[in-house]
Every structure is written in C-alpha cells, then in structure tokens.
Amino acid sequence: MTIKFKNVYINETATVTGPYESKGPFGKYFDLCYKDLYFGEKNWEQAEEKLINDAIDILIKKGQVDLKNIDVFIGGDLLNQIAPSNYAMSKFNNSFIGIYAACAMSTLGLILSASLIDGGFAQNVITFTSSHNTAAEKQYRYPVEYGGPKRKTTTFTSTGSACALVSSKNKGIKLESGTIGTVVDSGCNDVFNMGMAMAKAAGDTIYKHLKDIGRDIDYYDLVLTGDLGIYGKEILKDYMFNEYNIKLENYNDTGVMLYDLDKQPVYAGASGPACAPLVTYSYIFNEMKKVKYKKVLLAATGALMSPTMINHKLNIPSISHAVSLEVIS
C-alpha cells in the first residue's frame, strides 16, 4: 500500500547516541552523545528510556513547539512490550501510539504520523524510535560479557534515539509518500545473518513503491535501506537486478554508514531501529538542506525475530516500510 501525502513536512529532528556511534563518521552531526552505556541510570533498560526522553526534550527545544500542541506521539523500541518507550511516555501527558516493526519502526512511525496529519486528524506529531546495544544483546542474544565468537554476518545493534517533529507546517524536509510493506519470509532462520533475512523485504518494498507510484529508480538521488549490513547490501543489489531488473546505483545502507567499519569491531555493520533514522536525520538531512540530495527514498528494514520462534526452528519474518523524502522546492 502506497500513500501519497499532500502537505506533510518533517520540521525538525533530534538524535541522541551512545559512545560507539559518536566515534563513527557522523559523530559531529548528532545532537547529544553519551560516553558510556548507562547515561547515569541504574540499568540498560532505564538508560534506553533516558535516551528517548533526551531526544524528545532536544526536539521540543530545537523545534520551538509547546508540548500542548503535540497531538500525538508515535514510537517504539526493540525491547519486550516496548517497555522503554512506554516508560518514557509516562512522563508526558500526551496521547501515545506504541508501535513495533523491529528496525523498520522509524519509517512506519513517519508514515503513520503523515497519515494522521494529511487526514486532518492531527497537526503536530512526534515520532521516535530507539535501540540500546547492550539491552538488545541481553534480550535477544547472549550476555554482554560473554565472548563466544560471532560470525562475520552478525550486525551490531546501535545505541541511540532519533525523533522527528512531523507537521503540516511548510518547513524542513517534505514527506512526499510512503509505502507500507508486507511481512516477507525469506527462508532464513539464521539469527546471525539478519541482512539475508531482511534484504528480500527491502527489495519487495522498493519495487512496490516504484510500481505503485509509477516511478523509475533514477527518480531518486539516493536510495537508502535500513540495516542490511555489508553482505545484505550486496544481496539486495543482486536480488533487485535478478528479480525486478532494477539496477541500484545511487544506493547505500545506513547500517554500513553509521560506523567506521575498518576501525570499529561491528562485524557486518549497524542494526537496530535507531540506525536508519540516526543516519537520515543527521547526515542525510544535512546534505539535503545543502541540496546535494533532492529526493531520497528511505526503506527501513526490520527482522521480526522472536527468540522463541527461532527455538521452534521457524524462519525469521521481515518487513520493510519506505518513505520518500524531498527537499522543499
């Protein structure tokens, strides 16, 4: 399903990260970077809650909006019951829609925000996502201090929170259209190869977007995927060409961009719901404001992995939601 939006803009964005992200190539673009993973909190779960609260506080300050004028918050994170988001939102007296689409949450949040605004139901919406490396490792993988060897295709969950103020006010970046993806089973049950699980979903969503809206891939100056990593990126390129005869040329993956892959021990690259928006809201938006890129297609990808279902020997379903972002002409 593809929705074309008439009057929706991302007015302002805010990004807060942990130490690894600030040492990556985009460190200087982030609004706030912490030096450890606790941020002064007692545990990682509460640290993630703080990440969200910090990002929202910065956004409200930067966007110069009153909390009273925010109609609804839309957001989520990776942990069970999206607990950090719920706890972070308990500090506000605003309506809140909690969502879950694993690492594709950022674009789903943008599409939902834009739909509410374009439908006339809301004027200002804040959408946020977050992820925390050690909190996610604890829930999905092994204890953090456990040093069992990891495979080359493993991705590194990014620590950070990114939020965006979406409104009908003509300012910032235009949210032109959005495609809601389908859940795809790519036949992969390898939890250390999420890139393979998600690349098919990304390919299908990008193709669906182009088909629904009647565009060529060249229409976009840049196509971005969420967190496929080095190997997933190559799989997607090959898959798009083989399946849909689309050559991805001006294409990159935010998972590959967020860290310095040569120096940082992050294996195949970054992952997590915060990965795609951290890169997009900071570096990409900065370049868009300089008009280096005019039209960007962002397809965040999410592996809807459940450790229980993996133990049942089932495959990892994945999803990808895409948004088209444009510089205001």
């Binding site: 080359k152 295709t153 790519s186 992969c188 190869n193 393979m196 690349a199 190997y231 190559e234 799989i235 090959d238 898959y239 083989n242």
Partner: peptide, 8 residues
C-alpha cells in the same frame, strides 16, 4: 541462491 552467493 543469491543470498548464499554473498555470504562470507
């Protein structure tokens, strides 16, 4: 097949 080709 495509995925297998690109897995290290």
């Amino acid at each position: 097949e495509i995925a297998k080709k690109h897995c290290p």
